[in-house]
Design a protein around this nucleic acid. Structure first.
Lengths: 78, 78
DNA sequence: GTGTGACTTCTAGTCCGTT
DNA sequence: CAACGGACTAGAAGTCACA
């Protein structure tokens, strides 16, 4: 329960700021479709992307990471 | 001055634990030469690598990130 | 014990378009 | 406004031989 991936944290933070994926993408200098991929856990960001997204969301990277449980989607089956 | 990249932090932490690159590599399940690349700032890790290295060094990922100033080597040329 | 270049495989990240 | 697909380019992951 409550596996908090990068994407989950990002989505919550983004919605908390009332931003669309497009808006966030623009602020990060990233592609809109890539933001979507990240939120759905289909891509693993580099730390550069972590820093960019954190800054765009007005949160420190270490705080962002502190909200995560796992670095990657655990394919928990069964 | 004092630009603290991922690699710099990793090297300090590693030495602080009295580990060789080989030992750390083994603990991370990564290649020895890849650790070397990271320490010299020639690779930008994904957050999965951040988590692996942090665990191997006995530090929380958020603490690791907190010790960094920058996400990537600034090619500051004089 | 570490640095380095060369290399292959894989994936981060983009762009275009559709639903 | 977001999910999703395909095709693509840049660069990370991972390994080796040799200094």
């Amino acid at each position: 329960m409550g596996e908090r991936t990068f994407g989950e944290v990002m989505r919550e933070l983004r919605k908390g700021k009332g931003l669309s994926q497009e808006e966030l993408a623009f602020r990060c200098g990233l592609d809109r479709t890539y933001i979507s991929l990240l939120e759905r856990g289909l891509r693993v960001p580099t730390i550069v992307t972590l820093f960019k997204v954190s800054e765009a969301l007005g949160i420190r990277p270490e705080e962002f990471v502190a909200r995560m449980n796992v670095s990657y989607q655990n394919g928990e089956s069964g």
